[in-house]
Amino acid sequence: TIDEIIKALEQAVKDNKPIQVGNYTVTSADEAEKLAKKLKKEY
């Protein structure tokens, strides 16, 4: 679900690790936030 994706992003940001979500690779908190907002609009 979208919530699980967002939790995974938040965890990756805390661990400061890049995370791959679908076609996106998120490497920073800023990118994670942008991706989360984008995904919320889509779903």
Rank of each mutant, 00 (worst) to 15 (best):
E42F: 14
V21N: 02
T27L: 14
K40H: 09
K41V: 09
N23D: 12
A32Y: 03
K14M: 11
K17C: 06
D15G: 06
I5G: 00
L35V: 03
K7E: 07
L9T: 00
Y43E: 05
K14D: 04
T1K: 08
I19L: 09
N23L: 08
V21C: 13
D30T: 08
Y43T: 06
Y43P: 04
V13G: 05
K41W: 13
V26Q: 02
I19K: 03
K7D: 04
A29Q: 06
A36C: 13
V26P: 02
K41Y: 10
I19A: 05
K17S: 06
P18M: 07
L9M: 04
K14H: 09
K38C: 15
V21S: 01
V13Y: 09
K34R: 12
A29C: 09
V26R: 00
E31Q: 08
A36H: 04
D3R: 11
K14G: 04
Y24L: 08
T1D: 09
T25D: 06
E10R: 09
K34W: 15
N16H: 07
Q20F: 07
L39H: 00
L39V: 01
E10D: 06
N16K: 08
N23Q: 13
E33H: 09
E10N: 07
T1Y: 12
N16R: 08
I5W: 10
K38L: 14
Y43G: 06
E33Q: 12
P18F: 08
A8D: 03
K7G: 05
K41P: 02
I19H: 02
A12D: 00
K37Q: 14
G22Y: 10
A29N: 03
D30F: 13
I19C: 11
E10V: 07
N16L: 06
V13L: 07
D15T: 09
A29V: 08
K14L: 12
P18L: 06
V21P: 01
Y24M: 08
A36E: 01
T25C: 15
G22T: 03
E4I: 07
T27V: 11
E33T: 08
D3S: 11
Q11K: 09
E31M: 08
K37H: 11
I19P: 02
E4Y: 11
E42Y: 13
S28Q: 02
L9Y: 01
L39W: 03
L39D: 00
A12S: 05
T27W: 15
K37F: 08
I2W: 12
E10I: 12
L39Y: 07
K14Y: 10
A12P: 01
E42G: 08
E42P: 05
K14S: 07
L35N: 00
D3G: 09
A12F: 15
E10A: 08
A36L: 15
E10M: 15
A8G: 04
D15K: 04
Q11D: 06
A29H: 04
I6P: 01
V21L: 12
Q11M: 10
T1G: 08
K38R: 13
L35G: 00
E31S: 02
K34T: 11
D30W: 14
E33P: 00
N23H: 08
E33N: 09
K38M: 13
V13T: 05
G22I: 04
D15I: 05
E4C: 15
L9G: 02
V13S: 08
E4Q: 11
E4V: 06
N23A: 11
N23R: 09
K17N: 06
I2P: 04
E31F: 04
I19W: 06
T25S: 10
K40P: 02
K41F: 12
A8K: 08
K34G: 06
Q11H: 04
I2V: 08
E42T: 10
K14Q: 08
Q20I: 11
